[in-house]
Simulated assay, not measured.
Amino acid sequence: MPVLIVLTSSESTAQWAAQPINVGPAGWETCTVRPLVIGPDSEPFIADERLSGGDAFLEALSAIVHGAGPGSGPFADGAP
């Protein structure tokens, strides 16, 4: 089964992207796609690797969705 995943650092984009998408001709929609949206309100902000339990994937998601926000620290500066 295909899955549509949306990663965004914008809460307004996350809300927009979370809306169901009806597929098919008007009035004859045959499928509804419900995107999996990962945004600032659904992903915890990880500023300390101890909070992630060493999970690099969780840290990367946090950097993507919170990287441009206030308090993002090294993510916003592009530091390694």
Rank of each mutant, 00 (worst) to 15 (best):
P44S: 13
A60K: 08
P40R: 13
S52W: 06
A63M: 10
G71Y: 01
V23C: 11
D41R: 03
M1R: 15
V6Y: 04
A14M: 00
M1D: 15
A76R: 05
I38E: 07
S10M: 03
A26L: 08
S12V: 12
A14H: 00
L36S: 07
A14W: 00
V65D: 01
I46K: 02
L61V: 12
F57L: 11
F57E: 10
V23S: 08
W28G: 07
L36A: 13
I21V: 12
M1E: 13
S52G: 10
S72W: 03
Q19R: 13
A76Q: 02
M1F: 12
A76S: 09
F57M: 14
V23E: 08
L61G: 06
E59S: 10
A63F: 03
G24E: 09
Q15E: 15
S12N: 12
P25C: 03
A79W: 15
S12A: 15
A60S: 09
L51T: 13
T13Y: 14
P25N: 08
R34S: 09
T8Y: 05
D77I: 04
Q19T: 11
R34I: 02
T8W: 07
D48L: 10
A14L: 01
I21S: 03
L51P: 00
S12E: 15
H66I: 04
D41T: 14
A60M: 07
C31R: 09
P74I: 14
D55L: 11
V65Q: 05
A56T: 09
L36D: 03
N22G: 14
A14Y: 01
P70D: 14
S62Y: 05
L58G: 05
G54L: 02
D77Y: 07
L36E: 10
E59H: 01
M1A: 15
G71A: 03
G27R: 04
G54A: 05
T32Q: 09
A47S: 15
P40E: 09
A79T: 10
S72P: 00
S62A: 09
F45S: 07
V6Q: 00
S12H: 13
P2H: 10
G39Y: 02
L36F: 07
A18W: 04
C31W: 12
P25V: 07
G54F: 04
I46T: 07
E43P: 00
D48E: 11
I5T: 15
G73H: 04
P74F: 11
L58N: 11
D55M: 11
A68V: 12
P20R: 07
S9A: 14
A26R: 08
A14V: 03
F45Y: 10
G71E: 01
G54S: 06
P2T: 10
A79Y: 15
G53D: 05
P2S: 14
A79V: 06
Q15F: 10
G67N: 00
E49R: 15
S72F: 03
H66C: 05
P70M: 13
L51V: 08
P20D: 06
G53Y: 04
S72E: 01
P25L: 09
G73K: 03
A79I: 11
L36I: 11
G39W: 01
I46N: 05
S72I: 00
G39M: 01
I38C: 13
P25G: 08
E49K: 12
V23F: 06
G78L: 02
I38M: 13
A56M: 11
P74A: 09
D77W: 12
F45C: 10
G39P: 02
S10T: 06
G78S: 09
V65G: 00
A79G: 04
A63S: 06
V3W: 06
V23P: 00
